[in-house]
């Protein structure tokens, strides 16, 4: 859920930029270190960023025929962790703002927080917890991606409700925004979870080296998953 340019009034867009700033700074620091250690990370991160952009600009199939787009935040969070995902999110959101007028410059902070920080962080934590508990990999990916999507939209509703409490107060406003978004976002989260799960399945079947190199799956898990698929 992108908040449009001009939608957040004055104290709030500055506040969200200040909140997002430290995450992006930590991400940049990690990125700098990674690039110095292993030079090949920069092109790989760049293609991942481009992938997220393209994925989010494609129309996703949805029940009610409305036009919806996947966020791709879950995948970024699972693959690279929340801080680097924040940097990728920042870049993707700037391009989306300038190319597509999705989001904007003043609302960049709020959007980076919901889509680049909160969503990926949840996906990352769920994925780590799931693999540690030894749960089914695909189920974990599905839950991680779907939850990342849901959290993104809940955070957006919180941001809007804080800025526009109206006369019903924060809670009332939050319920109103959440209810309106839920119509499109809950089915969307489920569909996106399924799609990211399929993406994961294809990677395991065709090019599992990517996942083992990023330390996401051990060789033995890949072996097990591939045997199960046959």
């Amino acid at each position: 859920m992108h908040i449009m340019e001009g939608f957040l009034p004055s104290p709030w867009w500055e506040i969200w930029i200040l909140i997002s700033l430290p995450f992006v700074a930590i991400g940049l620091y990690q990125l700098n270190k990674l690039v110095r250690e292993r030079r090949e990370t920069l092109p790989l991160l760049a293609v991942a960023g481009a992938f997220v952009f393209v994925l989010s600009s494609l129309k996703i199939p949805s029940f009610n025929g409305s036009c919806s787009h996947p966020t791709g935040t879950g995948l970024g969070g699972i693959l690279f962790g929340p801080c680097i995902a924040a940097v990728l999110g920042l870049i993707v959101l700037v391009f989306q703002a300038i190319f597509l007028a999705h989001g904007g410059i003043t609302t960049l902070g709020a959007n980076v927080f919901s889509m680049g920080i909160a969503g990926p962080a949840v996906a990352y934590l769920v994925y780590k917890a799931g693999t540690r508990a030894g749960a089914n990999t695909y189920a974990t990916v599905f839950i991680a991606a779907a939850l990342a999507d849901l959290v993104t939209y809940v955070v957006t509703a919180v941001q809007l409700a804080l800025a526009f409490p109206g006369t019903v107060g924060f809670l009332g406003a939050f319920t109103a925004f959440a209810a309106i978004f839920a119509v499109t976002q809950v089915p969307l989260a489920i569909i996106e979870g399924a799609i990211i799960m399929l993406v994961f399945k294809y990677i395991v079947q065709l090019k599992p080296e990517i996942l083992t190199r990023l330390n996401l799956l051990s060789e033995s898990t890949v072996q097990k998953l591939r045997e199960a698929a046959v």
Partner: peptide, 27 residues
């Protein structure tokens, strides 16, 4: 609907793998 979810997943998966390969080639 079922097919479109499956196809979209296939598209995204194939795209990701091709992306990664072109990233390695670029490197």
């Amino acid at each position: 609907f079922r097919e479109s979810v499956r196809s979209f997943g296939m598209l995204a998966g194939a795209l990701f793998i091709r992306t990664w390969e072109s990233g390695e080639a670029l490197m």
